[in-house]
Amino acid sequence: MRLRNKPWAKDFMAAHPDVLIHEEEGATIDWKSVFANENPIHVEVGTGKGQFIIGMALANPDINYIGIEHFDNVIVSALEKVIEAEKPSNLRLLRGNGANLEDLFQKGELDRIYLNFSDPWPKSRHAKRRLTHESFLARYEKVLKQRGEIHFKTDNRKLFEYSLVSMSAYGMNLQEVSLDLHAEMPEDNIMTEYEEKFSAKGQPIYRLEAMFNN
């Protein structure tokens, strides 16, 4: 996907350090101090333009939410939406790489990780880049609390099937597996931008919850 350059992005991001935090090599973030509480922490890896994570934060004020995004030109759109939502106190954006979760969070610090409409990396030689590859699952397991959860959504059936196999092979407990989420829309479902786009075209949305058995 080609991203439109936004030359004003860095300055705009720098003007809102109360909302957007930058990953710094070798620096450990004290998230309890950031949020000034010890509420559960849920993280979305690849938060995109932020619609999902903002909606979750507004709906669940007793949970802390962090949206991670690697690209300035994308996360700045999420930042704009956070500002429009009047900066919920239980929400932060993190400009960083989701592959570095072990550097961003302490062992067992997170309660849940969301993977929404991740790049499917369809070519077999790119399988290790998929966010449900066993190497990523091992990273998630380290930063999640005991029996921590992954909630996964996609419109890509092949990626969904791959993820089912990958998580099962890793020994995870699969729950709430749906081959058409919108056929019986859960009342608490909050859609991402991609989810709205694909479901409007009649494409099924696949979803699962998976728990580590540690």
Rank of each mutant, 00 (worst) to 15 (best):
R112E: 12
G108L: 07
A138D: 12
R157N: 07
Y114Q: 10
L164I: 09
Q146Y: 02
D103F: 00
I113A: 04
Q175F: 01
V143Q: 02
A169E: 15
L137T: 09
K158Q: 15
R157S: 07
L115F: 06
L115G: 06
L131N: 03
K153D: 08
D155T: 11
D103N: 15
S168R: 14
F160R: 05
S124R: 14
D111M: 09
S163V: 05
V165P: 00
F117I: 12
D103W: 00
P120Q: 03
F160V: 06
H151L: 14
W121S: 11
Q146M: 09
Y140E: 11
Y170N: 06
L110I: 12
H151A: 13
A138M: 05
D155E: 10
K128S: 10
K128W: 01
K142Q: 14
L115I: 14
Q146H: 09
I113Y: 00
E102A: 11
E102P: 00
A169D: 15
V165G: 02
Y162Q: 12
E102S: 11
F160Q: 04
R157C: 03
H133P: 08
E109F: 01
A169C: 07
S135I: 12
T154V: 02
R125A: 07
E161Q: 14
N156D: 15
F152A: 04
A138R: 12
E161H: 08
G171P: 03
L131F: 09
Y140T: 08
L110P: 02
D111S: 15
E161N: 13
L131W: 01
